[in-house]
Each structure stands twice: as structure tokens, then as C-alpha cells.
Design a protein around this nucleic acid. Structure first.
Lengths: 190, 190
DNA sequence: GGACAACCGGAGTGTCCAGTCCGTATCGTT
DNA sequence: AACGATACGGACTGGACACTCCGGTTGTCC
């Protein structure tokens, strides 16, 4: 369907593209999506022209960053979902998604504000993660490890919200752990 | 200390100032802090000049909006903290703060990004709310209604995060209620 | 009702930033 | 080595937006 039959990039072009993506991931995540494009280019050691040839708009760059992070997350959830017992897998996945999604909500907001259809643009990887989470959720519920009335949209909200909680805290692991205890206990049946 | 001894405003000036504040609260809350200043002015029926005379920068306007909302919240928490039994008051306050703080986190981020010292600028009202929450927290803990290891910074994180959860959901009250159940159960001792 | 200060409106200014364009450099191929 | 295709850099453009300035208006006080 997607008619993007790519001719292989020239060696330097591929290198530059990858560098820009890496730098953008790093900078956008640590300093927010407001950082000017030119700064990303400088940090990646390329000119703005080069950046915009690979990613025709700033939103396209944001989107590419998100897609990659989501794909990584999907792969990791897949690995986690395979092993261990059902309940354990659910909570491990929850942790993983929360911890690896710092700042992603801001991305999504920025894209939405720019009029990009987030659901369409990121369909494939989000769908994979969501179906996997849905499977883990109902398995954990059948195992009696998660309250049965909870459904997927609520779980997703809890994921996002837990991410927001952690962002309020410093890097000290003890309070972060206590947050997880609160949320996990809340997710379990009474 | 603060040398702002104000001469009373002329009638029309006071009216305009109030209108701008109201409109800004409404617009910033519903459409985000990115809305241009000129639009606020138009919606309030004043020129930009007038707006900037009352609030010398956009951040000053944001700050004024936040101060007012925080003061309202402080007053409401005060009222709630007075009545009822300890545990009930705690959870009622929690609800109130979460429900009335939609979008406030975005405000804080915007101010911080602009180099405003949020803690200094909003000290008075935030401090009142925080001390009141701290009192409610330890009372609820002594009553055995909240897990004893939780401390104030974590509670604040949970508040912010719960707000983020609700923002993911539509206006339908049933899922929102389920979120509160999850969080409240998590806050209670095992 | 008149005079002065306080206040208003909105055209104009400076700045920032996403995105373009084209002369130059680099890659890959024969 | 030499040539065409591909990619690069960064000066430049256009638009958006926060904030200023000043001629005109309105409130207030005697």
C-alpha cells in the first residue's frame, strides 16, 4: 500500500539521516519539542538544508522520532510478554512502558496541535503495543491479578498518568518505587 | 516587603483588567497556552495595548491566571478540610485538586520554560495548599486511611499524575470514577 | 461643565523560526 | 580518472507573534 519504494540512500546521506534522528531523539526528549530545528542540525553536524531534505517538516521529524521509540517499545513488550507468568508479565510491561515513555506525551500533544492525525501517523506501532497490552490485561485479569472492571482505555490513561507522576520526581529511585507500589496496588483487585 | 502600593484603578480599567483575566483563564485552559495574546485581547473586547498595560508580559498574564486559580483552590480546600472526618476530608480534597487543576501543569511548564521561577512567583498560594494537604495527609495516615510511608512530594506527584490520567479520558463520568477508585485504593494501606 | 490625568486602541517594530534555493562538494560507477 | 547523479550547507524568505508608542478618548474631581 504505502508507495514509498526507496532507492537506497547514498552512504553519507544515510549517515546524516541517522545522526539527525539520534540527536533529535536526545534533544527533544531532554529539552522539549520547542527546541529550534537549526539547533538540532548544528548538534548533528549538518546544515538545516540537509535536515529538511530528510524530514520535510519539523512534525515529520517528531513523528519519525516517535515511531522509532514506539517500535523499540513494541519489541521490548513483545519480549516481556513472552516469558514469565501472566501477572508478572503485565506488571513488568507496565513498568517498561511508563519508564520508557518520558516526554512522549508532550510529543503527541505537539503533533496534535500542528494538525497531524496522530492515530493515523503512528497507527502501526501503537496498535501493536495496544493489542499486546490488551492481551496482557485480560490475561492478568483472568489470573485475578488486576481488577476485572478495568478496560483498555483506562489502562492507557493510567500509563500516561503514571509517567506524569514520575516526571514530577527526581532521579532518586526510592520515591519512584513507592509510586509504582501505589499504582500497582490500585490496579489489583480489592 | 512587596512595594506594590496600588492606587485604585479607574472604573473602566478595573473592568477591562477583570475581563482580560476571565477570558485568558477560559481560553488558556481550554485551548492551551499557545494561543496568541492578540486573540485574548480581541475576545475580551480590548486592544493589545490595554492587555499589555495590565499584564506587562504574556508570562505575567499566565502567572496571574494561575495565582487566581490557586487561590480559589486554596479557599476550597480550606472549606473541605474543616468539615467531615479526617479520611473523608483527605479524599475529597484530593478529588477537588485533581478536578480543578486541568491544564495547570502545562501552565507551569510554560512558565518554567520562559525562565520564570515558578516557586517564587506562586509561593503564597501553593504553600497554603501544600501545608493544608500535608496536614490532611498525616491526619489521614494516623487514621489508617492512607499508607504511612507516603510523603508529601509523592502525594503531589500522584495528584499531578491523576490529573494527567483524567485528561486522557472523555467527559463520560464512569471511567473517570474507575480511575479514582484505582488511585484511591492505591493510596490506602494494603 | 471644564480641565487634567488616567486609560484606550491598534498600527508598527523587532525577533524568532520553519522551510526554500542554489552554488558547491561528495559519492559511486564505468 | 572522469563524469553524472546525489547530497550538502547556509544565506535568505515569509509569516507569526510578543511587545511598544502615541494620538485620541473617557473617567473623575472641583
Amino acid at each position: 500500500m504505502s508507495g514509498t519504494q526507496e532507492r537506497p540512500l547514498r552512504a553519507d546521506a544515510a549517515r546524516n539521516r541517522a545522526r539527525v534522528l539520534d540527536v533529535a531523539t536526545e534533544v527533544f526528549t531532554s529539552r522539549g519539542v520547542g527546541v529550534p530545528t537549526e539547533e538540532i542540525a548544528r548538534a548533528a553536524g549538518v546544515g538545516v538544508g540537509t535536515l529538511f531534505r530528510h524530514f520535510p517538516t519539523k512534525e515529520a521529524l517528531l513523528e519519525a522520532v516517535m515511531v522509532r521509540r514506539l517500535e523499540e517499545m513494541a519489541a521490548m513488550t513483545a519480549r516481556l510478554a513472552a516469558g514469565a507468568d501472566r501477572a508478572e508479565a503485565f506488571f513488568a510491561c507496565f513498568r517498561l512502558v511508563v519508564e520508557r515513555s518520558s516526554g512522549k506525551n508532550e510529543f503527541a500533544q505537539a503533533l496534535a496541535a500542528a494538525g497531524v492525525d496522530v492515530h493515523a501517523a503512528l497507527r502501526a506501532p501503537t496498535e501493536e503495543i495496544q493489542t499486546r497490552l490488551a492481551a496482557l490485561l485480560s490475561a492478568a485479569q483472568q489470573a485475578g491479578a488486576v481488577r476485572p472492571e478495568l478496560c483498555l482505555p483506562e489502562l492507557l490513561a493510567v500509563l500516561v498518568g503514571t509517567g506524569a507522576m514520575l516526571e514530577q520526581l527526581g532521579p532518586d529511585p526510592a520515591p519512584r518505587e513507592r509510586i509504582f507500589e501505589v499504582v500497582f496496588d490500585g490496579l489489583r483487585p480489592r
